[in-house]
Design a protein around this nucleic acid. Structure first.
Length: 840
DNA sequence: TTCTCTCGAGTTTTT
DNA sequence: CTCGAGAGAA
């Protein structure tokens, strides 16, 4: 299309980059109006004009932010600490580039990790530059931009444009089939593990042939690499890609087709990357390829907030930026606008314990505020109880529940809070959890729609042949499979052919005929009615809705609601194909914010959010830092855990409240625990130890820091009894009842009295009576004792007389590794880990 | 084919 | 303890 202007020219104006399956918002997006540049220039010159927002956008920035925005040319790394206005810089920078007329909206590539981040960025840019943002087709997640490229050039990487994107579930089912075909024992080598392994390779940008020999051999006695090769072949045959391929294949596309790459180089004048510390190798390679064009690449990130190493993120990417992009401008944003002085101080002191970091010191000009509190609880139930109380108290002081959040390390910790809040009648909302489109009922429904839209989608067909149960089980499916392979046709077609033959049992044949007939019928209706109406008909006629209506389990109604929600979500799309195209990448929960409620979520999902008050429970060795992270990743794992702690604290605007419990039930066993080393890494001057509930002066069970020095929290553990309270849990089992009967009950929540509680054990660090047992279980990594193994043999034997803090005295009646069976005098028989009983 | 039971494992999560 | 997945029984 001819463009009257010389430079810059907007390539999106009718060029062949448009693809058929866009979101409605994109296809209907108005192209930049004629005179865009003039209008923008006018806006700059005349801040009072219609596009005035652009004229003043630089005003509110601090000098560093402004520098980051104005350094438009060449590589720029913005090290943006927590709460320093990272998103603001990113969005303002885009607005700035547009306002200066340096590029058309369609010439800016802006990548984020999540759809949520992309959406937010779009909104904020929109607020600054108005409709122009609609012309930014290249603002999106790595994956969605990858898809866009691949759809356009599918044939260059051996795909057809309508390829399907497999989610994790499909992926696993496919791999299971491969494992079976190879005769590999799925118990020893689970498909899940293979999926993770392959994902790991893909994250590192490795195609099957590039997998290092040693690693390829690590799975299933050397067959890992072959399986990966087979898997890729199978994907191609199905005209499908998985998430990793979206990047890997894009990279291949760009590498192997110089003309395509040149095209994108010409197109992308400015590249911006959010959360750069989270990029993996594949994403890095992809970016580097594209950045070779203009060199105007701006990465924003915070090495201290890199918490996704375990899924392939390479902190190294951000640490290496300056050598990767020579001549890079580095801007540090250290002025924090979020948290009070004490919170920042505590967080800074903590994170300073990490070695591999670029180093930033956050400062705030705001008030010092309240100190970070550290509170010890006897066990996890009391911890939940104490937090519940604090929440109610803060609420009484006028805060809303939504301004508070409980951030846990692992989701098993959430349960206790949920139970507690249910009894308190306190509204809470669990953020995160299974994504909407990951729910079984949604995927089933989608599978039906996929088969309708694309009769060659074997995986989708397999998923729902027998859902709801209609008597088409393994045997029938195998027959269809065999026939499909023999005839070289997709499953649906094979089914159709079998129905016409005599090969099937009469009953099966009839059922299958109905099913195939239904699909044909629905497919016929696809063009004659809106997709959401079709979906309703399909769910109804297939018996799927009925299946859940008959289900009397607790979740059934929720599932039906989800299905309704799905139907509703389909409405805005142009057609079924358009809907399916984007569902796999762009559908997220976006849970109704709804009523005022306390937020409960993992530390990971809290990244990027902020709250007035943040509760951080479970700061105990093993839980946080997480034992497995330590065992598997050693020092690197510890540092990532520490960054997680840093992320947690810096979520707080006004109050950060840390908790630890001396006892916690993990996998059904009561374990006593040691306060987290991170507690000691918080600067003392920013922390206040609020010994919550009394303290009988027993001190902690296990003190002794396992080699990393005594802690000031070792004995700051207390007894507040949770055992004597009225039964607040639902069905209590016998064991729980026993505990209540025998626990060292302090007589209610408030019990115990405060005397001698706080800090009484601070200075006098008595040697623990359990130290010997504990030390035997120590584990050294890189000369530093950072981990404890739990699998070692016990030093106890049958017949030993032992003492337990909660259950009292008893006799060992059985030993299995480090797990003991103990017959307690009062509490009855218990199974527990040896480290929390002591020999007497 | 489907239901029930036993066994085993058991961070973090996006796309 | 608690959930999910696979193996045996109806």
């Amino acid at each position: 299309m001819a463009n009257p202007r010389n430079e810059p020219r907007d390539p999106s104006g009718g060029d062949d980059f448009d693809i058929p399956f866009d979101l409605p918002s994109e296809t209907s997006a108005p192209r930049p109006r004629a005179g865009g540049i003039a209008a923008r220039a006018a806006a700059l010159a005349n801040p009072g004009g219609p596009a005035a927002a652009g004229g003043v956008y630089l005003d509110g920035l601090n000098p560093e932010q402004r520098a980051a925005v104005e350094a438009t040319e060449g590589p720029v790394l913005v090290l943006a600490g927590a709460g320093t206005g990272k998103t603001r810089v990113l969005t303002t920078r885009i607005a700035h580039i547009l306002s200066l007329g340096r590029a058309w909206p369609s010439q800016i590539l802006a990548v984020t990790f999540t759809n949520k981040a992309a959406r937010e960025m779009k909104e904020r840019i929109g607020a600054m530059v108005g409709e122009q943002v609609e012309g930014m087709p290249w603002l999106g997640t790595f994956h969605s931009i990858g898809v866009r490229m691949l759809r356009k050039h599918a044939e260059l990487v051996g795909l057809r444009s309508g390829f399907t994107i497999l989610d994790t579930d499909d992926q696993i089912r496919l791999l299971k089939q491969l494992l079976q075909a190879e005769g590999i024992d799925e118990k020893r080598w689970p498909a899940r593990l293979l999926a993770n392994t392959i994902d790991g390779w893909k994250n590192r940008g490795l195609s099957p042939s590039q997998v290092p020999a040693g690693e390829g051999a690590s799975f299933a006695n050397g067959r890992g690499q072959k399986l990966y090769t087979d898997y890729q072949a199978r994907l191609k045959a199905l005209n499908a890609v998985d998430f990793g391929d979206l990047l890997l294949e894009s990279i291949r596309l760009l590498r192997e087709n110089a003309d395509v790459l040149a095209d994108y180089h010409r197109r992308f004048r400015y590249i911006l990357v959010d959360e750069y510390q989270d990029t993996n190798v594949a994403q890095y390679l992809w970016l580097r390829l594209l950045a070779q064009g203009s060199h105007n690449v701006c990465c924003v990130g915070d090495d201290d907030q890199s918490i996704y190493g375990w899924r392939g993120a390479e902190v190294d990417n951000i640490l290496r930026f300056e050598s990767d992009f020579p001549g890079a401008t580095v801007v540090r944003l250290e002025r924090n606008y979020r948290s009070t002085g004490h919170i920042l101080g505590a967080a800074a002191h903590l994170i300073a314990h990490n070695e591999g970091r670029l180093g930033k010191t956050l400062f705030s000009e705001g008030e010092t505020g309240e100190k970070v509190t550290v509170t010890g609880a006897w066990d996890s139930q009391e911890e939940a109880r104490a937090i519940g109380e604090e929440i109610e108290q803060i609420q009484r002081q006028g805060s809303t529940l939504s301004q508070m959040a409980i951030l846990v390390r692992a989701s098993f910790q959430m349960r206790e809070f949920e139970e507690r809040f249910v009894t308190l009648g306190l509204n809470y909302r669990v953020v995160g959890g299974p994504r909407f489109y990951e729910r079984a009922e949604i995927r089933d429904a989608l599978a039906y729609l996929r088969v309708i839209a694309s009769p060659t989608d074997d995986l989708a067909f397999e998923r729902i042949v027998n859902v709801p149960k209609r008597g088409l089980g393994d045997a029938a499916l195998r027959q269809i499979h065999d026939h499909a392979r023999a005839a070289g046709v997709p499953l649906v077609e094979a089914a159709r052919q079998l129905v016409g033959s005599e090969a099937l049992k009469p009953k099966v044949r009839l059922t299958l005929r109905d099913l195939v007939g239904s699909f044909d019928r629905w497919r016929g209706q696809m063009t004659s009615m809106p997709q959401h109406e079709l979906a309703e008909i399909v769910l109804d006629e297939s018996g799927y809705t009925e299946m859940w209506q008959k289900d009397r389990s607790a979740e059934a109604t929720g599932r039906l609601d989800n299905l309704k929600e799905l139907v509703r979500a389909m409405e805005p799309f142009e057609n079924l194909i358009g809907f399916l195209e984007h569902i796999s990448l762009v559908m997220d929960t976006e849970g109704a914010a709804g009523q005022d409620a306390v937020n409960i979520m993992t530390l990971h999902s809290a990244k990027g959010l902020e709250f007035e008050t943040v509760f951080l429970p479970g700061w105990e060795e093993g839980v946080f830092p997480n034992q497995r992270a330590l065992d598997e990743q050693g020092r690197a794992g510890l540092e990532e855990e520490r960054r997680l702690a840093y992320v947690g604290i810096t979520r707080a605007r006004r109050r950060a409240k840390v908790f630890f419990a001396s006892n916690r039930r993990i996998h059904g066993l009561w374990q006593s625990s040691v306060p987290s080393r991170f507690l000691d890494e918080l600067s003392e001057s920013d922390v206040e130890v609020t010994e919550s509930r009394g303290g009988s002066g027993w001190g902690g069970g296990q003190s002794g820091r396992y080699g990393y020095g005594p802690s000031r929290f070792d004995e700051a553990q207390t007894f507040g009894s949770s055992y004597s309270t009225p039964g607040w849990q639902r069905a209590q089992n016998a064991a729980r009842a026993d505990e209540r009967g025998s626990g060292p009950s302090g007589g209610g929540y408030s019990g115990g009295g405060r005397a001698g509680g706080a800090g009484s054990g601070f200075s006098d660090s008595r040697p623990s009576r359990y130290a010997a047992t504990a030390a035997a279980r120590g584990r050294v990594i890189e000369g530093e004792l950072v981990a404890r193994s739990s699998g070692s043999a016990s030093s106890f034997k049958r017949g030993d007389r032992v003492f337990h803090q909660k259950f009292g005295y008893g006799d060992v009646t059985g030993v299995e590794g480090n797990k003991l069976t103990v017959q307690f005098d009062k509490a009855g028989e218990k199974k527990l880990v040896d480290s929390f009983v002591a020999a007497v």
